[in-house]
Design a protein around this nucleic acid. Sequence first.
DNA 1: GCGATGCGGTCACCTTCTGGCCGCATGGAA
DNA 2: TTCCATGCGGCCAGAAGGTGACCGCATCGC
Lengths: 317, 317
Amino acid sequence: MVQTSARLLALLSLLQLRREWSGPELAGRLDVGPRTIRRDIEKLRSLGYPIEAAPGIVGGYRLGAGAELPPLLLDDAEAVAVAVGLRSTAAGSIAGMEETAIRTLAKLEQVLPERLRRRVRALGDATSAFAVDGPLIDADVLAAIAGAVRDGERLRFAYRAKDDASTRRQVEPAAIVHTGYRWYLVAWDLDRDDWRTFRVDRIAGRVGTAGRGTRREVPGGDPAAYVRGALRATDAEAVQGRVRLTAPARLMQRRVPRRYATVEPDGEDHCVVTTTGGWSPQFIVWMATLDVDVEVLGPPELATAAQAIAARLTTVA
Amino acid sequence: MVQTSARLLALLSLLQLRREWSGPELAGRLDVGPRTIRRDIEKLRSLGYPIEAAPGIVGGYRLGAGAELPPLLLDDAEAVAVAVGLRSTAAGSIAGMEETAIRTLAKLEQVLPERLRRRVRALGDATSAFAVDGPLIDADVLAAIAGAVRDGERLRFAYRAKDDASTRRQVEPAAIVHTGYRWYLVAWDLDRDDWRTFRVDRIAGRVGTAGRGTRREVPGGDPAAYVRGALRATDAEAVQGRVRLTAPARLMQRRVPRRYATVEPDGEDHCVVTTTGGWSPQFIVWMATLDVDVEVLGPPELATAAQAIAARLTTVA
DNA sequence: GCGATGCGGTCACCTTCTGGCCGCATGGAA
DNA sequence: TTCCATGCGGCCAGAAGGTGACCGCATCGC
């Protein structure tokens, strides 16, 4: 009864397409008798999908919200919109959603028809202009890594170290982690026979899969903690920017995304804003547009950058 | 055969969860014999889902990308990520995707379990800080309107006119349109017996549905064109900001989202940037952070705003 | 070559589906 | 109030399909 299953899916699709359908309408669409429709509705209900119905001339069936999310049946445009949305969420519009977004994107990309993938890619180019500081990451690279992590596949890529020396790596990926405003890949380096943490923005070009590897657990079990440890060990943290605003923390908190900076009260009428990652010229510009008095607490370069932009703005007028 | 259908869905779900599954593995998970798994795979293939298989010790089944997108089976976290992504896309990170995103969001919200909806809403608050100018729109309101348009349901809401006078409206919505950086609802106003265009950001509070209405076509058939016409007729366009940059258009185009501004070449080494909607102080700040020479072409207030921010930045240092 | 895997044929049993009928309940409109 | 379209679900008979068990075959990596 492949037809029965297909019809159930088609029924779900129709119910997601429009809110209200009458039985005879559905019967006509699916080319079966009305009795069968009633039975199909019954089946869907027994599968847990809450389909409400109302008798009478204005009656009909409608799919409501239940305990579980039903399978989503998306058309082309909708699928593209979902992919685009996931990419921008992965880029970090909401703190804490990045990793889930990239995992979901990997799931979607696995089954996304090629024509839609092309459309998503074309749109993706337009996205991260005006990006908050931090490196630009290719969502495709992230999705490829997330997919390899999930499937236990080996990865091959060229890695640019701090001194710009490029090395070829072959690894068994274990986790992908987003901290602050950067992406890291925790993986077992097959050539070095040890765990390594890679900055995804330093991966050059495309990543290639290289067959099946052994699925590995990050030492300690908590990838995020591991990356934090590795950062402390090897990398000096980027220098955070700090400013003092003449405004209550309560008001500023709403205007500063937690992803980029944290706001702490400093007395009744002032607050201190600290960047999550390293400072950038854009940080001080944002602070200036908040339209309250700003005082740089550090580092001194932040003040210098502010002056440079001030100078540019002055020549504008 | 509700079990068969349920098993097919579960099979799809498993294949989306991980890339590779062996037959016996699937059989164990789904609690049927291996032969039935082979038959189920066959059924899914006959439904158009491209499931690749490889024999041998490393073999297994994997769901590939086909001509059609299979039903997406998302877990809680993934569904939330999708919803969050759609909200931010609807907020306009990519030109031209806003309306599709909000339609898709309406589709998702219709079936989203309440507990997930709460999570999405909680996260949504964090999003639009540092928002580009333009009014803040509640994605819930947009999704509610999009749903009503789709389902032909009447809407009731309070509308704040330009002079701040609030009126109660009851309408039959026909289309939701995103132009420039605003959202508009085109609807038949039941009390005024005529077509009206509403700015969504002027809708106060929540919108309520008010039963079934007649489905209407926007006059002329093209909602976007209708809104453009209505804007020309009633509303003076916001004053656009224009600046001239000392840099090739080619380079700047990548750094300026089309949603906010357009970049046109002005000779070899210069280009002109025009805001899509009205100018705002943030516009000139962005231009300053592009790190090229900027010249304000108009309006004069833009230069004044630039000076104000420059002054603020100067006191910072 | 071995072993694990995928493929598909066949068989018998039996569950399930389907369409058509029935009467009932519900809710809006004439 | 009556009428009508709708949803609900029982019943039946015939037909269709699902399932597990067996079989031999092909393929791939070790």
